[in-house]
Design a protein around this nucleic acid. Structure first.
Length: 229
DNA sequence: AGTAAGATCCAC
DNA sequence: TGGATCTTACTT
């Protein structure tokens, strides 16, 4: 069964909310095209003064800015940001209003509207098994698959379902149990990308989970951690 | 003002 | 392994 997420569902710390999002569904309608994703991989991001541990890997580490404003706002919205000048990546904003917190949606399985997703992604149909698996494998691909863009849809409210620039979003909890694995976050620089922050969560064994890679200086930081024992 | 780097992806 | 492409943060 599926149940629509409420703001209260997202009041907790990102590291508490993140694993609960595994197996949940994100549904969007963008310019009339309906698509639904089963979330398989996420990462938690805190911020300055959020929770017991400041997060040096978060966009919010320096405090509120124009870019990260959505992260500091009310839970139940999506923080959609531009990555590397190209990709719109999607976070579920959590924690109380006034505290920075979000969960990056890193990968998922497209379970409805795969033709619309393929069109958004510029992938030819019919989709091979591998192409289907890769539709939303990685945060840039996931954002494009769901049709959300930073300039248009940052701050879109999935708890109310209100339309924003031709789009609506919904988050639906599933009661099917999933196995959860954890590890360092992908592509995050320095100590923040090591087991000092094991804030990546994925469904154990799921084929849509994206490959791991170290961020800049993170492998070295991890070795230092090891040496320190 | 200039530059380096970034929660990435794709082609070479 | 490097280029695309643009925003932010840090350095002159």
């Amino acid at each position: 069964m599926l149940r629509a997420a409420t703001r209260a569902d997202l009041l907790g710390l990102p590291i508490e909310v993140a694993p609960r999002l595994l197996g949940a569904h994100l549904a969007t309608v963008v310019d009339g095209a309906e698509t639904m994703l089963r979330i398989t991989e996420v990462e938690a991001y805190h911020g300055k003064g959020t929770g017991t541990v400041p997060d040096p890997g978060s966009h919010a580490r320096m405090g509120p800015t124009a870019r990260n404003a959505t992260m500091w706002g009310e839970p139940g919205h999506l923080y959609v940001y531009l990555s590397h000048g190209i990709h719109s990546c999607i976070n579920v904003v959590c924690g109380p209003d006034g505290e920075a917190g979000g969960v990056l949606l890193r990968a998922g399985e497209v379970i409805a509207g795969s033709d619309a997703v393929a069109a958004r992604r510029g992938i030819a149909t019919p989709l091979s098994r591998i192409a289907l698996r890769d539709l939303a494998r990685g945060p840039g691909r996931l954002g494009q698959a769901m049709g959300l863009r930073h300039a248009l849809h940052d701050g879109i409210d999935f708890a109310s379902g209100a339309a924003m620039n031709g789009a609506t979003a919904q988050l639906l909890w599933s009661d099917l149990p999933v196995g959860v694995s954890t590890g360092p976050r992908v592509g995050v620089a320095g100590l923040a990308g090591t087991m000092a922050f094991p804030w990546r969560f994925w469904i154990t064994g799921d084929p849509t989970v994206s490959p791991f890679r170290w961020g800049r200086g993170a492998a070295e930081a991890a070795r230092t951690l090891e040496d320190a024992g």
